[in-house]
Amino acid sequence: MTTEAIALRRLIDSSSSILITTHINPDGDAAGSSLALYHILCKMGKNVLFISPNEIPPSLHFLPGVDEYVPFNQNPDTLAERLQNTDLLFCLDYNTLSRTGDAMAELLRTFAGKKVLIDHHQQPDTDYAISFSDTSYCSTCELLFQVLSEAYPDLKWLTPDVATCLYTGILTDSGSFRFNTVQPRTHRAVATLLEAGAPHTAIHEAIFDQNRPERFRLMAVMLSHMTYLSHSVVYSWITEKEFLQSGADKEDSEGFVNMGLSIRGVKVSALFREEEGKVRISFRSKGEVDVNQYARTYFNGGGHRNAAGGTWYGTIQEAVKRFEETIFEVVPS
Results as ranks from 00 to 15, higher is better:
31 A>Y: 04
24 I>K: 10
37 L>I: 05
28 G>V: 12
21 T>H: 01
20 I>H: 05
34 S>A: 15
15 S>H: 03
21 T>W: 02
31 A>K: 01
25 N>T: 09
10 R>T: 13
23 H>N: 07
3 T>G: 10
40 I>E: 00
22 T>W: 04
38 Y>V: 11
35 L>W: 04
43 K>P: 02
18 I>M: 00
15 S>Y: 02
29 D>R: 06
11 L>E: 14
37 L>G: 01
17 S>L: 12
15 S>F: 00
40 I>M: 03
9 R>P: 00
26 P>G: 05
31 A>D: 07
6 I>F: 13
20 I>F: 09
4 E>A: 14
39 H>A: 02
30 A>I: 06
30 A>C: 12
32 G>A: 07
22 T>L: 05
33 S>G: 12
26 P>E: 02
5 A>N: 13
23 H>V: 04
37 L>T: 00
32 G>K: 10
14 S>G: 12
2 T>G: 12
40 I>W: 00
34 S>I: 03
37 L>H: 01
34 S>N: 04
29 D>I: 01
13 D>Q: 15
20 I>M: 12
23 H>T: 06
18 I>C: 00
38 Y>W: 15
19 L>F: 07
20 I>R: 06
2 T>I: 08
28 G>A: 07
25 N>Q: 13
9 R>S: 08
40 I>H: 01
43 K>Q: 13
24 I>T: 08
35 L>A: 04
26 P>I: 01
43 K>V: 02
21 T>V: 11
27 D>S: 04
29 D>S: 06
